[in-house]
Simulated scan of single mutants.
Amino acid sequence: MSTYYAPRGGLPPQTQLMTGRAVFTESYAFLPRGVFSDIVTSLLPGWTGTRMWLIARPMSGFSETFSQYVMEVAPGGGSDAPEPEPRAQGAIFVTEGELWLSLDGQEHELGPGGFAYIPAGCRWRLHNGAARPARFHWIRKLWEPAPGLTPPAAFVTNEAEIAPSPMPDTEGRWATTRFVDPADLSHDMHVTIVTFQPGGLIPFEETHVMEHGLYVLEGKAVYKLNRDWVEVEAGDFMWLRAYCPQACYAAGPGPFRYLLYKDVNRHAQLRGPWSR
């Protein structure tokens, strides 16, 4: 049974040393779990009983494609109009608690490990009808049309229902749980769960145009981010801009797992501010 780390907020004691692991560079940002305090939460219009940590958003000169929230919904909280942007698609991954999700009139119950894909223009509602807080990740991206493609359909699943796909020649020490078929070009973003068993590694510096968000769900490792080796653990978040080199050694006694976002399956945009 997998466990997923979820922040609790609060404030560190006045006796705590200020020195931490947070880093913001020209090629990556690293948010350790200790920065998920009460003072950096925010509220959202149209939501009740809800607060969130906004951990990624498009920023000029750094990244372009997505936003990611860590959401905390109190009992009875939620929204009947969650998404204000009609062109935005979304992905939800539940780390704790139970949620009631309505997608175009179809009702679903999501518990830990639950995943939902919400296409642009879908009518949806989300509420916590249980007696304890629910926590989940909400990833948003504008869906990019392409000739011959229609928006993907909404769906709900749970990671426990999906067999991880091992990477070749790794004896299963490195595997990916894929919520959508990689060959389905209607999807222009992939949200997956990557799992390394102890001793698993990325044995080369991945360097590519896709932007990444990586939230560590479980375990610990050392991660190569551009020129730096960084110790990471459950609850940390890494935000990698295009072309940031990356690699990984799973150094802990148990599995190292993270929720991964990347943009895929579209031509490069050739228009700029000079082409009007």
Rank of each mutant, 00 (worst) to 15 (best):
S2T: 14
S2W: 03
A6P: 07
T19N: 05
T19P: 00
A22E: 15
E26K: 12
Y28F: 13
Y28V: 02
Y28T: 11
P32N: 10
V40G: 06
T41Q: 08
S42C: 05
W47G: 05
W47Q: 05
T50F: 06
T50N: 07
M52F: 06
I55P: 11
M59W: 08
M59I: 08
M59K: 10
G61K: 13
E64K: 14
T65Y: 04
T65E: 11
F66W: 14
Q68R: 04
Y69Q: 08
Y69F: 03
E72Q: 05
V73K: 00
G76W: 03
G77S: 01
G77V: 03
D80G: 12
D80A: 15
A81L: 12
A81T: 08
P82V: 02
P84N: 08
E85I: 11
P86F: 11
R87Q: 12
A88I: 07
E96V: 03
G97N: 07
G97T: 04
W100F: 04
S102Q: 08
G105C: 13
E107C: 04
H108Q: 01
L110E: 12
G111K: 04
G111S: 11
P112Y: 13
P112N: 05
G113P: 02
F115C: 06
Y117W: 13
I118E: 01
P119Q: 10
R123G: 08
L126Q: 09
L126N: 01
G129V: 02
A134P: 12
W138I: 03
R140F: 05
K141H: 02
E144A: 03
P145R: 00
G148R: 07
T150Q: 14
P151I: 04
P151G: 06
A153T: 09
A154F: 14
V156L: 00
V156N: 03
N158Q: 12
E159I: 12
A160W: 03
A160V: 12
A160N: 10
I162W: 00
P166A: 04
D169F: 12
T170E: 03
E171A: 11
G172H: 05
T176S: 08
R178C: 11
F179E: 10
D181N: 10
S186I: 03
H190R: 13
V194L: 01
P198N: 14
G199C: 04
P203W: 11
E206H: 09
T207V: 08
M210K: 01
E211S: 01
E211P: 11
H212D: 10
E218H: 06
G219H: 04
V222F: 14
Y223P: 09
N226W: 08
R227V: 06
D228H: 14
V230C: 12
V230S: 11
R241C: 10
Y243E: 15
C244K: 03
P245A: 01
A251E: 13
P253N: 09
F256P: 00
L259H: 10
L259M: 04
D263P: 08
D263Y: 10
V264N: 11
V264H: 05
V264D: 09
N265V: 06
R266H: 14
R266A: 15
L270Q: 09
L270R: 15
G272L: 02
G272T: 14
P273D: 07
W274Y: 15
R276K: 07
